[in-house]
Amino acid sequence: METPDLSPHWRRYAQRRWLATKLKQQQFAEGTNPQRAQGIRAEIQRKAGQWQLDVTRIPPDPQPAEPTRLPGTVQVEGLPERVLLQRRSNGAGFVLGGMSVEAVQTSKSLQVTLRSREREDSIFVKLTRKGGLVRRHGLTIYADDGKSLLFRLEQVCVGRLVYRGGNPRVEVVVSGLEERQRICIRPGL
């Protein structure tokens, strides 16, 4: 399940599908081999905890539909299930760890604001077809060559603005959580 070229959405779908299959195996084994069923149950609990998934919320046949990917709107991948993604007409927002994130899509750019919830600190990131921009404390850094621009919001997250190639996006790795959490924000289709 550790395939690096798999998008966070498809990785989450594969994890849910794996758990659904194991739950079916456990149910079958309970009638034929209770000892095997107990081993499967332990494996399900271990993986569900590792992946931060609630086994009681896994349908028997998970579908690969992606609710965070709507045409013409900001796409957010990699959010834990417990995080509420608030949709807006031209963007989305969420709170995770020590930060709040607001993403807005215009006709020419994707604009993301990351705010520390504990300190009065924020970063504004803008992604266009021609390059990227990071603004913090009145200082603006703009890049139109290369492939990416790195940024950091102290003690909250590190990130990368990728503006070259066929997959422009804002990647954020959130600090201060039990497990490393990588969030990817992309312009809508």
Rank of each mutant, 00 (worst) to 15 (best):
M1I: 13
M1C: 05
T3V: 13
L6S: 04
S7G: 11
S7Q: 12
H9P: 05
R11W: 06
Y13G: 06
Y13R: 14
L19T: 10
A20M: 01
A20W: 04
K22D: 04
L23S: 06
L23G: 00
L23P: 06
K24H: 08
Q26L: 11
F28E: 15
F28Y: 13
A29V: 03
E30G: 03
A37G: 04
G39L: 14
G39V: 05
I40A: 11
Q45S: 15
R46S: 13
A48Q: 01
Q52K: 13
Q52M: 15
L53E: 00
V55Y: 06
V55P: 01
R57K: 12
I58C: 00
P59A: 02
D61Q: 10
P64D: 14
P64S: 07
P64A: 00
E66L: 07
T68P: 01
L70R: 14
L70M: 03
G72R: 13
T73V: 08
T73F: 13
G78K: 05
G78V: 01
R82H: 15
V83A: 07
L84I: 07
L84Y: 06
Q86R: 11
S89C: 04
N90E: 08
G93K: 07
F94A: 11
F94L: 09
G98L: 08
T106D: 15
S107T: 12
S107R: 15
Q111Y: 00
T113L: 05
T113H: 08
L114W: 08
R115S: 11
E120R: 06
D121T: 13
F124D: 10
F124E: 14
F124K: 13
V125P: 00
K126Y: 03
K126T: 12
T128P: 07
G131V: 00
R136M: 07
R136A: 13
G138V: 00
L139F: 02
Y142F: 12
Y142G: 02
L149K: 04
L149Q: 03
L149F: 03
L153D: 10
C157E: 05
R160Q: 10
R160M: 13
L161S: 04
Y163R: 05
G165S: 02
V174D: 04
V174Q: 05
S175N: 04
G176Q: 13
E178G: 12
E179K: 09
Q181K: 09
R182M: 15
C184R: 09
I185R: 03
P187H: 06
L189I: 09
